[in-house]
C-alpha cells in the first residue's frame, strides 16, 4: 500500500542554513515527533529509532535513512526503510528550497510511504490521519528550529 504526502512551509532562516539543517540527519532527526535515538552508520546513513503506534499500542521502529541525492542549496532526497513487528515500510522523501518573498526560505517537500505486511491490514486506514498529525508536529518543530524565537510570525 502506497501513500503520498506533500506540502510546503516557510521558515525565516536563509536557504544555505535550511539546506545544511535538512541534509544532516543528526540535526533534523531529533525534530521527529517521536524521536528516540540516532546512530550514524556512515557519512550519509543514519539509523533513527522512533516510537510508533496507535493509541496505547506502541513500539519502537528503526528506520535506516540514507541521503541519496544532494544538490545544495536547493534539493536533497532521502530513502529509508524500516521494520516493525509483522511488517516493513519503505519511504522516499525529498525537499526543494526556494527563497521566500520577503526573506526566508520556502520548503517544498514530498514523501512517499510504502507499507508491507500485517502493518497494512492493521494500520492501513489509520496511517494517513496519524501521519498527518505527526507531519504537522514535525513542521512545527522545524519552523521553531529554523525561524528562531522572534520569527514565528514572519514565517507565516
Amino acid at each position: 500500500m502506497g501513500i503520498r504526502f506533500e506540502g510546503d512551509f516557510t521558515v525565516t532562516a536563509p536557504r544555505d542554513e535550511v539546506y545544511a539543517f535538512l541534509s544532516d540527519p543528526q540535526k533534523f532527526a531529533p525534530c521527529l515527533p517521536t524521536f528516540q535515538s540516532l546512530e550514524m552508520k556512515d557519512e550519509h546513513t543514519a539509523e533513527v529509532t522512533v516510537r510508533v503506534g496507535v493509541g496505547k499500542i506502541r513500539g519502537n521502529a528503526t528506520i535506516e535513512l540514507r541521503l541519496k541525492d544532494e544538490q545544495p542549496p536547493t534539493h536533497a532526497a532521502y530513502d529509508g526503510k524500516g521494520k516493525v513487528m509483522g511488517g516493513a515500510f519503505n519511504m522516499e522523501t525529498s525537499f526543494d528550497l526556494e527563497d521566500a518573498d520577503g526573506g526566508g526560505t520556502v520548503v517544498k517537500w514530498v514523501g512517499d510511504l510504502n507499507m508491507f505486511g500485517k502493518l497494512v491490514a492493521l494500520a492501513g486506514g489509520l496511517i494517513r490521519p496519524v501521519a498527518k498529525k505527526d507531519i504537522q508536529k514535525l513542521v512545527d518543530a522545524l519552523q521553531a528550529e529554523l525561524s528562531g524565537p522572534q520569527a514565528s510570525g514572519a514565517a507565516g
Binding site: 500500500m1 502506497g2 510504502n114 507499507m115 508491507f116 500485517k118 497494512v120 491490514a121 492501513g124
Partner: peptide, 14 residues
Amino acid sequence: YDEGGNLLTSTFSD
C-alpha cells in the same frame, strides 16, 4: 490484495 501484494483482509475483523 493491494497493488503491492499486501493482503488487506488478513484478520477476522477485516
